[in-house]
């Protein structure tokens, strides 16, 4: 039987597909073992304030983490971080938490971030997500958007937008996490 050129091509494509799906699935099954979990933090390359490559799987703390996505042009984001900054040392002492503030400023304003946070005298850990890669991986629509992670880096709380007073809710959750009596469905 003679096959037309098109038919041949189709068969070859099918063949390729088989090989690919085979390789793919073998590869998938081989993944299961020998891995440490990374909580709810995806692995994305972003930058430190000194422009060095930083992989988000390195995010770590012995206590809870307040992970906040913000930008220098976003008023409510700055309100939120200012509200936390006002109580930072007290709350840190009490709950052992730390703030990681991920700026989504792109290269138009990412160079502003270092002088901006120092000018505000904030003492948070700052990361630069210039192309919103981490923001996208965390499924964020708009900033401000914040997460509280427990010490195993599991998301226990998240919130988009900020209203004055929200910092009290954040504080309550951090305290409960510290005392070990936080449940998500309250």
């Amino acid at each position: 039987m003679k096959l037309s050129k098109q038919k041949k091509l189709q068969l070859r494509n099918n063949g390729l597909k088989t090989i690919f799906s085979f390789a793919f699935l073998i590869f998938l099954t081989s993944l299961s073992f020998s891995q440490t979990t990374n909580g709810d933090i995806p692995s994305v390359d972003i930058k430190t304030i000194n422009n060095e490559v930083y992989n988000t799987s390195e995010i770590n703390n012995e206590g809870p983490i307040f992970l906040s996505f913000w930008a220098t042009w976003c008023k409510p984001c700055i309100q939120e971080l200012s509200a936390i900054n006002e109580n930072y040392s007290d709350w840190q002492e009490e709950t052992g938490f730390k703030v990681i503030a991920v700026s989504i400023d792109d290269t138009r304003s990412s160079a502003r971030v270092a002088p901006f946070i120092n000018g505000k005298a904030w003492e948070f850990e700052i990361l630069l997500d210039e192309n919103s890669m981490f923001k996208r991986a965390m499924n964020i629509n708009n900033v401000p958007h914040s997460f509280i992670l427990d010490k195993n880096k599991k998301i226990v709380w998240q919130h988009s937008s900020f209203s004055p007073g929200d910092e009290n809710e954040i504080y309550e959750i951090l305290k409960k996490l510290k005392d070990g009596n936080y449940s998500e469905d309250k």
């Binding site: 099918n14 063949g15 088989t18 799906s21 699935l25 099954t29 299961s32 073992f33 891995q35 979990t37």
Partner: peptide, 27 residues
């Protein structure tokens, strides 16, 4: 070929599910 692929897929998915089941318990 398509039938072969289907068979193969079913088999691997089955295999995969078992693997996932185990790994859940372990890590």
């Amino acid at each position: 070929i398509i039938q072969k692929i289907n068979k193969f897929l079913l088999f691997t998915i089955f295999f995969l599910t078992i693997r996932i089941g185990f790994s859940q318990e372990e890590n």
